[in-house]
Each structure stands twice: as structure tokens, then as C-alpha cells.
Simulated scan of single mutants.
Amino acid sequence: MEIFETCQEINGLLSVRNEMAARNLLVRLLAELDRTNTPYPHVVNHMIRATGLFPYLQLESASWDEKYVHRAF
């Protein structure tokens, strides 16, 4: 699964307000990244935040505002 192409697809789903499909695709991407032990690129943390799946933020690669949102959640 290509990370950036998948994030682009997730963003497209979010832009047409198909949040459920975007979350499902993101969860599959996260499972693949975990399976291959791949650190999340910043764009993946952004997609996590955009879909509201805050518990899945990878804090090691998160920006300060993503860390704040994670802590607040």
C-alpha cells in the first residue's frame, strides 16, 4: 500500500464528506504500517487528526499541535 497515494485517497473521501470510508481506509493503512513496523510520516498523523482517530497518533512523529490534541483527547 503506497502511503502518500492512500493519504490522497483519504483526503478525497473527506472532501466529499465520506468520513466512514476515509476512516476505514486509514485504519487499513495504519494496520499495514504497524505490520511492517514503518514509522508514520507526518501526513499520516495529519490524516489521523482529520478523521478524528486521535488515539492512533504516533507521538514520535507528531507536531506540537498534534501532541496537544492527543493530550487533550
Rank of each mutant, 00 (worst) to 15 (best):
M1Q: 10
M1R: 06
M1H: 08
M1F: 09
E2M: 01
E2F: 00
I3W: 04
E5R: 03
E5W: 02
T6S: 07
T6M: 02
C7D: 01
C7I: 02
C7A: 13
Q8G: 03
Q8M: 07
Q8F: 07
Q8S: 12
E9D: 12
E9C: 06
I10A: 03
N11M: 06
N11C: 07
N11K: 14
N11H: 12
N11W: 09
N11T: 13
G12H: 06
L13N: 08
L13F: 10
L13K: 10
L14R: 05
S15D: 14
S15L: 12
V16E: 12
V16L: 07
V16N: 06
R17M: 09
R17Q: 14
N18Y: 09
N18V: 05
N18E: 15
N18D: 15
E19S: 12
E19Y: 13
E19V: 15
A21V: 13
A22I: 05
R23E: 08
R23M: 10
L26T: 01
L26R: 01
V27T: 08
V27D: 04
V27N: 05
R28K: 12
R28I: 03
L30D: 02
A31G: 07
A31R: 13
A31Y: 12
E32Q: 14
L33C: 09
L33K: 04
D34M: 05
R35W: 06
R35S: 11
T36C: 08
T36H: 10
T36A: 09
N37R: 14
T38V: 10
T38S: 10
T38K: 10
P39N: 09
P39E: 05
Y40R: 11
Y40F: 15
Y40S: 08
P41Q: 05
H42G: 07
H42C: 02
H42S: 10
V43Q: 05
V44K: 01
V44W: 00
V44A: 02
N45W: 03
M47V: 01
M47C: 13
M47Y: 00
I48H: 10
R49M: 14
R49W: 08
A50I: 01
A50D: 12
T51E: 05
T51F: 01
T51C: 15
G52Q: 01
L53D: 14
F54D: 10
F54M: 11
F54H: 13
Y56I: 00
Y56A: 14
Y56S: 14
L57W: 05
L57I: 15
L57P: 03
Q58W: 02
Q58K: 06
L59A: 03
E60P: 02
E60T: 15
S61W: 03
S63E: 09
W64F: 07
W64V: 12
W64Y: 08
W64N: 07
D65A: 04
V69P: 02
V69D: 08
V69H: 06
V69W: 06
H70P: 04
A72T: 08
A72M: 13
A72C: 12
F73Q: 10
